[in-house]
Simulated assay, not measured.
Amino acid sequence: MRIGLDMMGGDYAPAEAVKGVRLFLDNAAPEVHLVLIGDEQALAPLISDARLDQSRYTVVHSSQVIGMNEHPTKALKEKPQSSISIGFHLLQNKKVDAFISAGNTGAMMVGAIYSIKLIPGVQRPTISTILPREDGSNGLLLDVGINADCKPENLVQFAILGSLYSQYIMGTATPRVGLLNIGEEEGKGNLLAQATYPLLKENALLNFIGNVEGRDIFKETVDVIVCEGFTGNVVLKMAESFHDVAVRRNIKDEYMDRFDHEQYGGTPVLGVAEPVIIGHGIARAEAFKNMIRTAQQMIESKLMDKIRESFVEVAKEN
C-alpha cells in the first residue's frame, strides 16, 4: 500500500507534515509505504531530525508549490512540477493508492475531477464533515461546501456516498439517513427539500428515516445528514467555532475537544475514482497523521469498489 502525501501544502508545511508522518509511522503497519512529495532540500533536514525509518518512505522531488490563493486550473497547468500536480500524476498512473494534501483546495478539486475522474454514474463529487455526538459516537454531514446549489438527484447521490462512508470507514452497520430541514414533517422546507424527500424515501439503497432539524445535528437521531453545500458549510464553520470559543474561554470539556479539526485531519472527496483527501489549510501534525490513517482505511476497506458497485445498482434502477 502506497500513500502519497503533499509535504508542501498547508500553512505549517513541511515541518508539521513531517511531524505527522512520524506520528503515523510510529504506529502504522509495515505494509504502509509513504510517498512524500516535496522539495528535497527543504525536507531533508526535517526528515533527518525526525529520524524516520528509511524503509517506510520514499521522497519524490517537486520544484514548485501551488499557493493557497492561486487560480486552481491555471496553477495546475502552469506548474506541472508542483507537489499537487505530481501527486495526481502518481495517483493517475497507479504509482500511489491514495493522495493527500492540505494545500490549495480548488487545485485539489480540479485535479480530482479532471485527472482522476468521477466514478461512472456519479453526477458530482461531495465532501463531508464528522459530527461529534453527545454519546461519544460520530455522525456525518454532507455536502459541506463544494456544491452550494444542488438538484434533488444530487442530494440522493450524496446520501448514498455518505452511507457507504459511514458503513465502511466509520463502522456503522446500517446508517440512518436524514434530510436537513426546518421541520420533521414530510412536505416541510424549500423546493429542494420537498423534491428530495420522496426520492430519498423510495431509494432502496438508503435507510432513510425522514427530516431532521438543526437541533438534531449533534444527537444520535441519524448517522448521515444530507444537505446542499451552502447550508452544510455554514454548519461546518459554526461547529468549528465551538472549539475555538472553548479554547478562548479556557473551557475544559471533553465533548468540546472533539470539535478540534485536528482529530479528523481532512475530508475525502467522495465520488472520484481513487482515494483523494483534502486537509485543512491550518493542519498540524495530528491532522496529517489522521489524514494518512483515513487514506489507509479507504484503501483497506475497498471503499471505491463499494461505491462503484452501488452506482451500478443505481444505473440499473434508472
Rank of each mutant, 00 (worst) to 15 (best):
Q54D: 08
F99G: 04
E40Q: 12
G162A: 09
G279Y: 01
T73L: 12
P125W: 00
G266H: 02
V144R: 08
S301C: 05
S163P: 06
I116P: 00
D257E: 14
E286M: 10
I225M: 12
L140E: 09
V144D: 04
F208R: 01
G229L: 00
N211Q: 11
G271E: 00
V234A: 11
E313H: 09
P132I: 08
G87S: 04
L34G: 00
Q296E: 12
P125T: 05
D11F: 09
V96C: 11
M238K: 04
G111E: 06
I278D: 03
L52A: 03
I169D: 03
Q64R: 13
A295Q: 04
R293M: 10
L206W: 06
P14Q: 04
R176K: 15
K77N: 07
C150Q: 03
S101F: 01
L199S: 13
A28I: 10
G106E: 06
F99Y: 12
M304I: 14
E78T: 13
G121R: 05
N233M: 07
K188C: 10
I84A: 07
I146V: 09
I160L: 03
A159H: 05
K95H: 14
G67I: 10
R176P: 08
L205N: 08
D223V: 05
N211R: 11
M238A: 15
L140D: 08
D216M: 07
K74H: 13
N27A: 12
I100C: 04
E313I: 13
S62D: 11
